[in-house]
Simulated assay, not measured.
Amino acid sequence: MAKPKLMTREELYELVWTKPVSNLAAEFNLSDKGLNKKCLRHNIPCPPVGYWAKVQNGHKVKRTPLPRNTNPELETVMFWPKSDTVIAVKAPASHLTEEQFEKALAYTIPEQVNRYHSVVAACRKAYKESGKRRNIDNYGRVTFPRLTANPGFKVTPETFDRACLFLQGMITLFGSIGWSFVERYASRSDTAASWGFKHGNEILSFEIKELVTKMSVSERNSQTETGKRTSRRNEPDFSFLSYSPPYYKSTGKIEFAIELYSPGFKVRWKDNGTELIEHQLSTITQGFSRAFEYSRLRTIENEKRRLEYEKQEAVRKEQARLQRIEKECRERLFSLADTFDKVTKLKHLITAFETKGCDDPRLVEWLSWAREVANDLDPLAEPRRILDIHEAIGDKEIFY
Score class of each variant (00 low, 15 high):
H95M: 07
Q100R: 04
F101R: 12
F353C: 14
F174C: 00
T224L: 11
K342M: 12
E111M: 09
Q223L: 02
Y51T: 08
S282M: 02
G196F: 06
I350D: 07
I300P: 01
G196Q: 04
N36H: 12
S180N: 12
L322C: 03
S194L: 12
V55Q: 06
S242T: 11
E372Y: 04
G357I: 07
P20I: 05
T148N: 01
E397A: 14
R385I: 11
L377N: 13
E365R: 09
R268I: 07
I325L: 12
W179H: 08
L281K: 01
N272Y: 03
A126P: 01
T355L: 15
S31V: 04
A104Q: 06
C329Y: 06
F334H: 15
D137Q: 04
R115V: 12
A257I: 11
L367F: 01
W195E: 00
R385A: 15
A88Y: 02
P72N: 09
T191S: 13
R141P: 02
A320Q: 04
K317V: 05
S295H: 05
N69K: 06
R184Q: 12
L333H: 08
I87K: 13
V21K: 05
L297D: 08
S289R: 05
N375Y: 03
V142I: 15
S244Q: 13
E75F: 07
R63M: 13
W80G: 00
W269P: 07
N201R: 12
I258R: 05
M215F: 02
E99Y: 09
E397W: 07
G58V: 06
Q319M: 12
K198H: 06
T230R: 05
H42G: 08
D237E: 11
F240L: 11
V77R: 00
S180T: 15
R229N: 15
N272L: 02
S130H: 03
A25Q: 10
A88V: 01
L147R: 13
T76W: 10
K132R: 14
Y51G: 03
K311P: 00
T143I: 14
I258T: 06
L15N: 02
K311Y: 13
S282E: 10
D376Q: 14
S242G: 10
Q312F: 15
A392N: 05
E27C: 08
E354S: 14
K304G: 03
A2R: 01
H279Y: 14
R268P: 00
V113A: 07
E259F: 10
A374M: 01
R268W: 00
D360A: 10
Y261K: 14
H42T: 08
W195P: 02
T143M: 15
T274P: 01
I325D: 08
N302T: 04
D237S: 13
K342F: 12
L66P: 10
A257R: 13
E202T: 14
F340I: 13
